[in-house]
Write a protein that binds this DNA or RNA. Structure first.
Lengths: 347, 347
DNA sequence: CGTCAGTGCTAAAACCTTTCAGCCCCGAAG
DNA sequence: CTTCGGGGCTGAAAGGTTTTAGCACTGACG
C-alpha cells in the first residue's frame, strides 16, 4: 500500500499502452482492441485494484461527478432534513457525490458558496430552501445545470427548473377532508397568510395553499366560523390563537391548523380546557413534522414532501435533459386519529 | 466570460513566468521577487479575476481542501442536524469544503462512501453518528486524518480521535438538580439502560449517563422510588412507563426521563391524570430536542451538544496536530420551567 | 582578475488522465 | 506488383498547477 496504482502501472502490468488501458476501462465505443488485450487489461486493473484519480480526470474532462447543494439552512435545521436524504439517495444511485454549503440567508455566504462550487467544477447545483422561498441568485455560468428545490429563483423567465410542493391541491384536500366529515358550520382556521403584499421572498407557495383552502370552502358553499392570525407559526402562537377562538365562544367543531407546530399548540390549549381531540374538536394540519406522530391522538396532516422534492431535484440535475420548468410534488395526506365524523344528530 | 483565466494568462498579462505568478500568489516564503513584480502580478490576477483550478492543484499536491463527512443518518434525520452546522461552520471559517455521505448503517454503503472519499483525496474524514455508537471501521490509509464525532471506533488503541458528550457529568448534574430541589424520597426514573451486555455498538456513552445518575444518588444517600424500563425511548413508551408508575401508587414527586421524547410521553400521561408539571410532579430530562421548548411548561433538560461536537471534530481534523485522544464536550443544562422546589411542609 | 554570494527570475518536470493523430501490418482488390 | 482499407495498437499532447534546479547578472572581496 505504498502508492496508488496509476494508469501507467496497469498498462505496464498488462503489457499495453496507457491509451489502450484508458480505452478499455472506459469502454469507448469506437476502439477495436483484441479480446485478449481487453481481458489482460481488466485482469491487470483488478489485480492492482486500480481506481482512476478523479482529480486528473477532472482536469482533463472539466467534469467532476459531483453536485453542489446550497441552501439557507436545510442541512442545519431539523425540518427539512429529509430533502438531503432524497438528494443523497439518487446521487448515490448514480454514483455522484454531493458537496454541501449553507448560506444562512447571507448573500455574502451565497456568493462564497457559489464561487466554491464553480471553482470545483461541480456538474450541477441544487438550491434548496427550508421554507419555500424565492431565491435571489446571482448570474451563473451559462452551462451550469441548476435546479431549485422547495424554492424558485428570481430569474422569472423559467430559466431554472424548480421543484415545489403541490400546495394548492393539499390546501383543497385538507379542507375537503374536514367538510366531508360533516364539519360545515364549525370550522376554525388557525394561522393565516402573511398580510404583507404577497411577499414571495418569504414564501412562494403559501398563497397556493390558502387558495386551495378557499376553493374547497367555495365549492361547498361553507364559511369558517373563526379565522385567527397567529403571526409566526409556532406552538405558542397556536396555543394562544386557539385559546382566543375558544374564549370567543365560537361553536368550533374542527380546526384547520396551518402547520403541525401550530396544531401542537392547539392540542395544548384544548387540553387545558378539558376538550378532547377528536371527540370534541377535530384537527387537520400541514407538514407532517415528527411531532405529528407524537401527539395523542396522532395528527392527520398533509405531508411536506421534502424527500421526494430532493429526489426530484437531483434527478433533474443529473438527468439527460437540460433541466427546466416547474415540477409539483404531491403532498400526501397522512390520515391518523385527529379527525372524526361529525354526528349530525348530536350537533 | 469565454474561458476561465489560467496561471499562464496571468503570467502573460503581468509579463512574468508562471513560476513567478505561482510563487507570488501563494506567497511562498523563500522567494525573492521585486516589489514591482509582485505588484504587477497581483494586479494582473485581480484584473482577470483569476482563481486557481482546484483540480489541477489537487493533482499536483494530492490535497483538496475538502473534508469528508460520513455518518449513519446524521444528515438525513432531524435529531443531530446541529452537528452539521458545527462542522460546516468551522470548515467554512477555514475555507474548506465538506463532502457528505450517509451509510444508513450498511457496511456496504460505508465501504462505498469511504472509497469515494479516498478517491477524491479528501484531507480528512469525520465519522458521525446520531446515537453515540461504536463504529466498525475498515482499515484506512495510514496518512488519513480521522475523527469520530458522537461515536468511537473499534480501533481500541486510541488511534482515532473521538469527540463524545460528557454524559457522566450530565447524568450526575440532572439527578443532583432534582435532589437539590428537595426531591429525595419521590424520584422516579423513566427509561433504563439497554439490558444487553454492555452493547457498545448501540451506545458508547449511555452507560456513563447512568453511572453519573447513580453517583449522585449514592452521594446523597437516596434511592429512587420507582424505576421503569421502557424499551426504546419514544414518546409512547414514556407515556406507558409513566402511566405504569402512577398506577402503581408510588409517591412520585419528580421524574427523571432519559430523553425528551420520553418526557413528552410523561407529560401526556400526567396530563391525562390531571397532574400538573411542575406543581404536582417535576420533570428533568436529557437531549434538548426541539420539543423540549414546545412543551408547557418548557422542559428542563441536559443538552446533547451536537453543534459543539461537530465544531470540535472539524477543528481536530483541520488542526495543526495529528488528531487523537478522547474529547468530552460538556452537556449544558437548559433550565426551564419543569422543576420546582419541593415544599417540605407540604410533603 | 578570479571567486563567491546574493538577487531576480524562469524552464521544465511532475501529477494522471483522455484523446487526437497516426503507425505498422496484413489481406484483398485493382 | 501496387494500392488501399481496416484492424490493432501507441506516442504525445493537453489540461493547470507547484516545485526543483538552475541561469544570468551584480557587486564585493580576496
Amino acid at each position: 500500500m505504498t502508492k496508488r496504482p496509476t494508469l501507467a502501472d496497469v498498462a505496464a502490468l498488462a503489457g499495453m499502452s496507457k491509451t489502450a488501458v484508458s480505452l478499455v476501462l472506459n469502454d469507448r465505443p469506437g476502439s477495436r482492441l483484441s479480446a485478449d488485450a481487453v481481458a489482460r487489461i481488466h485482469e491487470a486493473a483488478r489485480e492492482l485494484n486500480y481506481r482512476p484519480n478523479p482529480a486528473a480526470r477532472s482536469l482533463r474532462l472539466g467534469t467532476t461527478g459531483t453536485i453542489g447543494f446550497i441552501s439557507d439552512e436545510v442541512t442545519i435545521t431539523r425540518f427539512a432534513s429529509a430533502m438531503i436524504r432524497g438528494l443523497l439517495d439518487v446521487a448515490d444511485e448514480r454514483d455522484h457525490g454531493v458537496l454541501i454549503a449553507e448560506t444562512g440567508n447571507h448573500p455574502k455566504q451565497l456568493a462564497k458558496a457559489l464561487e466554491f462550487m464553480i471553482d470545483r467544477q461541480v456538474d450541477g447545483i441544487v438550491f434548496g430552501s427550508m421554507a419555500a422561498r424565492l431565491l435571489d441568485l446571482p448570474p451563473l455560468p451559462e452551462s451550469m445545470r441548476v435546479v431549485t428545490a422547495n424554492s424558485a429563483s428570481n430569474a422569472g423567465d423559467g430559466t431554472y427548473a424548480s421543484v415545489l410542493p403541490a400546495e394548492h391541491e393539499a390546501g383543497r384536500a385538507m379542507m375537503r377532508l374536514l367538510l366531508e366529515h360533516g364539519h360545515r358550520e364549525g370550522i376554525g382556521i388557525i394561522g393565516s397568510a402573511p398580510s404583507a403584499p404577497a411577499n414571495k421572498r418569504s414564501s412562494v407557495t403559501i398563497g397556493a395553499r390558502f387558495a386551495g383552502i378557499d376553493e374547497a370552502l367555495t365549492e361547498a358553499g361553507a364559511t369558517p366560523v373563526a379565522v385567527v392570525d397567529v403571526g409566526s407559526w409556532e406552538p405558542w402562537n397556536g396555543y394562544a390563537g386557539t385559546k382566543q377562538v375558544l374564549e370567543s365562544g365560537a361553536p368550533v367543531t374542527a380546526l384547520l391548523c396551518l402547520n403541525d407546530r401550530v396544531a401542537f399548540g392547539a392540542y395544548q390549549s384544548l387540553g387545558e380546557r378539558g376538550l378532547r381531540v377528536p371527540d370534541d374538536v377535530s384537527i387537520a394540519s400541514f407538514d407532517d413534522d415528527e411531532i405529528a406522530s407524537y401527539l395523542r391522538p396522532a395528527l392527520t396532516t398533509a405531508k411536506l414532501p421534502y424527500e421526494e422534492m430532493g429526489r426530484k431535484a437531483m434527478e433533474l440535475v443529473l438527468g439527460p435533459d437540460e433541466p427546466g420548468g416547474e415540477h409539483l410534488v404531491e403532498m400526501p395526506v397522512q390520515v391518523r386519529g385527529s379527525i372524526r365524523p361529525l354526528d349530525r344528530s348530536s350537533s
